[in-house]
Amino acid sequence: MRIAADTDLCIGAGQCVLTDPELFDQDDDGTVVVLDDHPTGDKEDSAREAVNLCPAMALSLRD
């Protein structure tokens, strides 16, 4: 699994960071930064949750 982030869609809501700050951060403009784009184990569940919570649908998962 790989996390993909479309920074053009990101609105800086920060739900991803709140879901898992080990996987996501935000830059100075509030745009998502993926810290670990290949999560494993429990982090896969966190990544799925972050994708589902993103109000801008800026995150996706790919195999």
Score class of each variant (00 low, 15 high):
46 S>I: 02
21 P>S: 15
30 G>R: 08
58 A>Y: 02
17 V>R: 11
8 D>L: 08
26 Q>K: 11
57 M>N: 13
36 D>R: 07
46 S>E: 11
46 S>A: 15
43 K>T: 04
59 L>S: 00
17 V>S: 06
28 D>Y: 02
48 R>K: 15
57 M>S: 13
26 Q>R: 08
59 L>Q: 01
50 A>Q: 12
10 C>A: 09
11 I>C: 07
38 H>Y: 11
15 Q>N: 13
12 G>D: 05
17 V>H: 12
44 E>I: 14
14 G>Q: 11
24 F>A: 09
42 D>H: 08
2 R>D: 11
17 V>F: 12
38 H>R: 09
49 E>I: 12
56 A>N: 10
33 V>N: 06
52 N>L: 10
30 G>I: 05
5 A>G: 00
44 E>P: 01
31 T>S: 08
8 D>P: 04
36 D>F: 03
63 D>W: 06
4 A>T: 07
63 D>C: 08
18 L>G: 15
52 N>I: 05
4 A>I: 08
53 L>H: 14
58 A>P: 00
7 T>S: 12
46 S>V: 00
53 L>I: 09
46 S>T: 10
36 D>V: 10
25 D>E: 14
50 A>R: 08
37 D>Q: 12
5 A>S: 06
4 A>F: 02
62 R>M: 02
8 D>F: 00
4 A>H: 05
39 P>M: 09
20 D>N: 15
50 A>N: 08
31 T>V: 09
53 L>N: 15
22 E>D: 14
29 D>A: 10
2 R>F: 11
52 N>G: 12
27 D>C: 09
14 G>Y: 04
61 L>V: 08
19 T>Y: 02
7 T>R: 13
32 V>N: 01
22 E>G: 13
34 V>M: 03
59 L>D: 01
16 C>E: 06
16 C>G: 10
10 C>N: 06
45 D>R: 14
48 R>H: 12
53 L>S: 12
19 T>A: 13
25 D>P: 10
44 E>A: 01
22 E>W: 13
12 G>Y: 01
11 I>H: 05
22 E>Q: 12
26 Q>W: 05
42 D>F: 01
30 G>L: 05
52 N>C: 07
47 A>I: 01
61 L>T: 06
2 R>G: 04
24 F>L: 13
53 L>T: 09
59 L>T: 04
42 D>R: 10
60 S>D: 06
42 D>K: 11
27 D>G: 07
9 L>I: 10
29 D>T: 05
43 K>A: 15
2 R>Q: 15
6 D>L: 02
16 C>D: 00
33 V>F: 03
38 H>S: 07
5 A>E: 01
34 V>H: 00
47 A>M: 09
60 S>T: 06
33 V>D: 07
6 D>Q: 07
31 T>E: 04
53 L>E: 14
15 Q>T: 09
